[in-house]
Measured scan of single mutants.
Amino acid sequence: GQVNVNNTTYTFPTPKLAKEFAQKAAKKYNLTVHVSGNTVTVK
């Protein structure tokens, strides 16, 4: 799974890890998680 945070893309071996990372990043920066297919964007 891929996660985009502040124009930086992070790649994870599983969608589960990507989702967990996205949720932590969203909480940390007070942003929202947007899911589109296999790509998760935090903005």
Rank of each mutant, 00 (worst) to 15 (best):
G37S: 03
A25F: 15
Q23S: 09
A26V: 11
E20V: 09
A18R: 00
N4E: 10
Q23I: 13
V3T: 12
H34L: 13
Y10V: 03
Y29K: 06
G1S: 12
Y10E: 01
T9R: 08
G1K: 08
V40M: 02
E20T: 06
G1V: 14
K27F: 08
T39D: 03
E20W: 15
V33Q: 01
K19E: 10
T9M: 09
K19P: 00
Q23M: 13
K24W: 15
E20S: 09
K27A: 10
A26R: 15
K24L: 14
P15M: 11
V5L: 12
N30F: 09
A22N: 01
P15K: 10
A25H: 06
L31T: 06
K28E: 09
L31Q: 05
K24G: 04
N38Q: 05
V40A: 04
K19S: 07
N30A: 06
T39I: 10
T14V: 02
T41E: 05
P13F: 06
V40E: 00
N7F: 15
V33Y: 07
A22G: 04
V35R: 06
A22S: 03
Q23W: 13
T39K: 09
V33N: 00
K28T: 06
T14S: 10
N6Y: 15
T11Q: 06
T32A: 08
P15Y: 09
N30S: 06
E20Y: 12
N38L: 07
K27P: 02
V5R: 12
F21Y: 05
F21T: 01
T39V: 11
A26L: 10
K43R: 12
G1Y: 07
T32S: 09
K19M: 14
N30W: 14
V42F: 09
N6G: 12
L17M: 13
Y29H: 06
K43M: 15
A26S: 09
L17C: 13
S36V: 13
P13N: 07
G37R: 04
F12D: 00
K16F: 08
F21P: 00
K16P: 02
K24V: 11
H34S: 13
T8A: 08
A25E: 03
N38F: 05
G37Q: 04
L17H: 07
A22K: 02
P15A: 14
N6W: 15
F12R: 00
V35M: 04
A26P: 02
L17T: 04
K24Q: 10
N7D: 11
E20H: 08
H34R: 07
K16V: 06
F21V: 02
H34F: 14
T41P: 00
G37F: 05
K28I: 11
Q2P: 12
T11V: 13
T9P: 02
Y29N: 04
T9V: 13
N7Y: 15
V40F: 04
F12Y: 02
K28R: 11
N38E: 03
P13A: 14
T39L: 07
N6F: 15
Y10N: 01
A18K: 00
T9Q: 07
T32I: 14
G1I: 14
Y29Q: 05
P15W: 08
H34T: 14
Y29M: 05
K19A: 10
T14G: 03
K24A: 09
T11L: 06
K43H: 13
V35Y: 04
G1A: 12
N38D: 03
A25Q: 06
N38G: 03
F12G: 00
Q23F: 11
A26Y: 07
G1E: 11
Q2E: 10
F12T: 01
A18D: 00
Q2S: 12
